[in-house]
Design a protein around this nucleic acid. Structure first.
Lengths: 158, 158
DNA sequence: CAATGTGTTCAGTTGATATTGAACAACATT
DNA sequence: AATGTTGTTCAATATCAACTGAACACATTG
């Protein structure tokens, strides 16, 4: 292998990016198809119709439906109307990455609240356990704070 | 429900914490048993034997074996010897949470490198796509940087 | 009205991974 | 040596979420 980058055809690079992002997103715990949809919309930038997504990714319309719903709720993509076309169109959200971080922060906050609740149920006699569980809570607080700042930072310089 | 915390029995709080952490960790993509092992060791703080883990969590020894191996590689727990006892003992690692972050950072760096590689393959004519994919790379860099700082911060004030 | 096109829902299937449990190797004890 | 313990491995199984595809509701068009 050469160490310098070798530009392939545009179509090949696009396909690579979509598949690669699919597996990365999958390893992050999200459905693979959602990752591929997101990658396609990020790469293309412009509006892509519901039908085009199903066709381009070779998956069922049901999968597209649930994937775009998931991505919409996390504000990673938005559904837009194309005048004179009955189909739904989608495009990457303006600040998709900051929103991705915010979604993750939300999940962490829920987990932190869950742990904090348990912390309140540990008898005060269990000083050591309380301290270690509190450390767990501190971990979450530090993470959500740092990630929120990062999201804001990326929003400022998109 | 009352808004004030209600301390239950120590055993109950411990069991709650272990199960709760198990499902949280599972939602993060790790095996549930590994999460329960980690929670038990965090709660107890002291050394717990291989056999005690299997007994307390009511799972097979095979599961304990693979779980502790996973947790060891991520430096979340450490295997220690108890003089005069043939069994392996385990206890929570000194800076488990920072190490947890570092492990996550490592995964992100790998993903970022993967995406950067693809970026080099996109023809320069695809200016818009290149820019948006570069944004993806920037997201990863910002995240790994922030998380590394957070890990260091937690390490300083454990 | 019938026929076509669109997105959603959901029961069933598939596929990936966690978990089990038996076989095993290594070692200690009798 | 024989027996018992301990941790690992691996094939079989269980589990769980993703995905499919058909049924559906709704809208548009002819």
């Amino acid at each position: 292998m050469d160490s310098t980058a070798k530009p392939k055809s545009a179509a090949q690079a696009r396909a690579d990016f979509i598949e690669k992002t699919g597996v990365i997103v999958q390893s992050e715990g999200l459905p693979r198809i959602a990752g591929r949809v997101l990658a396609l919309l990020l790469y293309d930038g412009e509006r892509v119709s519901f039908g085009q997504l199903a066709e381009a990714l070779q998956v069922s319309r049901g999968s597209i439906s649930s994937s775009v719903r998931l991505l919409e709720t996390q504000q990673l993509i938005k559904r837009v109307a194309e005048p004179g076309d009955r189909q739904d169109y989608f495009q990457i959200a303006p600040s998709a990455f900051p929103n991705l971080i915010e979604a993750s922060v939300l999940r962490m906050r829920r987990a932190a609240a869950d742990i904090e609740e348990t912390l309140g149920e540990i008898p005060v006699t269990e000083a050591g356990s309380r301290q270690r569980v509190a450390e767990f809570v501190r971990y979450y607080h530090a993470m959500t704070e740092a990630m929120t700042e990062t999201a804001q930072h990326l929003r400022r310089r998109p």
